[in-house]
Design a protein around this nucleic acid. Structure first.
Length: 294
DNA sequence: TACCAGGCTCAAA
DNA sequence: TTTGAGCATGGT
């Protein structure tokens, strides 16, 4: 089967794919083109024709692949279609910033990406704009990924390179992908994963603090990058990455009168936002980046 | 031209 | 413990 429809509720596909958690999605007309676990995928969201008895939040995500699939669980997992989104929203603190963010970014969701791809991508993210991260990741895939089939083949598509493949490269070679000083960081992480010194697949079974510490053993990986990998790929829904945008949001919305240090914000986030703090964080991030005035 | 970007390391105070 | 320079690169 090359195409399958998924019924969804309160799901903003475009907002989710462009909210800075994944870097390989490109618009293709009304649809979105990307690569998930080495498969080329085209996703299109369609809303039902307006009618009184139709839930306005219900819609369909149509997925098209290039190679026939029997089992689509990989896509259900990636898009987290089985999540109880209403319960997650209900767990958020009932305060004005969260009400504004959830109202403005209706249907925003978390993705569950491949751990290595997610970790490597965020290693490349430091002091880069999202557009630049996308360009850098695309170059990395072109140089070190495997070419994969798509529906048109008008443009080449590539898988995300394995840690083994990147570990076999040199820092100078990686720098050709415009990653600058991050090349040595990516190489260090790839070597640790490739050698088995860092076992990403085992991290979900460990406590949050231990999993974070394991990732931060990699040179160039601090708490922010580790938390992104934990939240967007390893199933730690309580992880709360604090980057410049989220720090700005927390400062402006929760500590407007006095400047709070990063450690203070981390402690606040760990207790204030509940078991789905990571999703709350994504709402604040996307809200601040897309709202005209906050 | 100047500033900034989903940061982090390292040295100096 | 805290602070700030430096790191590559490209967009605005």
């Amino acid at each position: 089967m090359l195409t399958r429809n998924f019924s969804v509720h309160d799901y903003d596909l475009a907002g989710t794919l462009t909210s800075g958690q994944a870097f390989r999605w490109r618009p293709s007309g009304e649809a979105w083109e990307g690569v998930i676990h080495g498969r080329w995928v085209l996703l299109r969201q369609t809303s039902p024709a307006s009618a009184k008895d139709v839930d306005p939040l219900s819609s369909t995500i149509e997925a098209t692949v290039a190679v026939p699939e029997k089992d689509w669980q990989w896509l259900t997992d990636y898009l987290r279609l089985s999540d109880d989104h209403a319960a997650a929203l209900a767990s958020f603190p009932d305060d004005e910033p969260m009400r504004a963010a959830t109202s403005h970014c209706r249907g925003l969701r978390l993705l569950r990406q491949d751990p290595w791809e997610c970790f490597a991508s965020f290693i490349l993210s430091s002091t880069k704009q999202i557009v630049q991260i996308q360009q850098c990741v695309a170059l990395l895939c072109q140089h070190y990924g495997e070419r994969i089939p798509s529906d048109t083949d008008a443009t080449a598509h590539f898988s995300f390179p394995t840690a083994d493949r990147i570990a076999a490269a040199t820092e100078a070679e990686l720098r050709l992908c415009k990653m600058g000083f991050r090349a040595k960081y990516l190489l260090d992480a790839a070597r640790r994963v490739s050698s088995g010194q860092l076992n990403l697949a085992a991290l979900p079974q460990r406590p949050l603090d231990e999993a974070r510490a394991a990732l931060m053993e990699c040179h160039g990986v601090g708490r922010k990058i580790a938390d992104c990998a934990l939240l967007f790929s390893l199933g730690f829904d309580e992880a709360f990455p604090i980057d410049v945008w989220v720090e700005r949001a927390l400062q402006r919305l929760y500590f407007p009168k006095r400047r709070a240090k990063k450690v203070r914000l981390e402690r606040f986030a760990a207790t204030h936002f509940g078991p789905h703090a990571g999703l709350a964080q994504q709402y604040l991030f996307h809200y601040l980046r897309t709202a005209k005035r906050v």
